Amino acid sequence: MNYKVDTDFFFVFSLLFLGAIALFVFVYVALQYYFRLKTHQRRALRTKRKQENYKQIESKYAKRKLSKLTANNQKLKINLKNDLEHILKSDENKFDHLPSFFSNFETIYPTFGQTLKKIIADITANELKLCAFLRLNLSSKEISMLLNITPESVNKARYRLRKKLKMNSKDDLIIFLSTI
């Protein structure tokens, strides 16, 4: 038995065999890459959807919380107005009711006093009270009745407060205090 192998046929067959193996490996690697790419895209899309859902839930929660806080603030503002009316109408000592009023004021505007102290380092307690009353948009007459001083004294205190804040007479003090 004498088999003679044709070298040209063997060479072509070897090249075809190696080409088929290379093609098979290339297709296998390409398919793996394609499937991983698709899986990565699906995961990215799923993550994006989860983030969007989380943002929607977070915004709904923030809106709910804001509406609850707004409702509570409205209740407290009404209580503040009622407290002020009660203090103004009462004939007895008004100074007994002012601490409860200022504690309610601090619950509504918790950063008001701290912010004013940052703006004016040497602010006094009476000036803080005046600022609180001005923040509530009370007139000089009402403030004078609450603090048991004359309306002219309230105007002088306003003038001194403007000087400390380095404000012009044209600038509105109440608008400035309402932004704090």
Rank of each mutant, 00 (worst) to 15 (best):
I21Y: 06
E52M: 07
K163M: 14
K89W: 06
D8N: 15
K117L: 02
L69S: 09
S59P: 07
N53K: 08
N2S: 07
D8R: 11
I174F: 02
V27C: 12
K50E: 02
D171T: 12
I21W: 02
N104M: 07
D96V: 15
T111S: 05
R135K: 15
S14D: 12
L136E: 01
L16G: 10
L128N: 07
D6R: 08
T115V: 02
S100K: 12
L88F: 11
R160M: 08
I149Q: 12
L116C: 11
N148A: 03
K89Q: 11
L31Q: 07
D83I: 00
T115D: 03
K55G: 10
T39V: 13
N126C: 00
L80R: 11
K55C: 05
D6F: 14
F95N: 14
F105C: 03
R64C: 10
S100W: 10
K50L: 10
H40C: 11
L147G: 06
K166V: 02
R135Q: 09
L136P: 03
F17D: 13
T124W: 00
L128T: 08
F13L: 15
K77F: 00
N2K: 14
K94I: 05
L177R: 05
C131Y: 13
L128I: 12
S178L: 03
A132Q: 13
L116V: 09
F26D: 01
Q51S: 12
N148C: 15
Q51V: 00
R64S: 15
T115R: 07
N2E: 10
V12W: 09
I119P: 03
I87K: 08
L37S: 11
V29W: 12
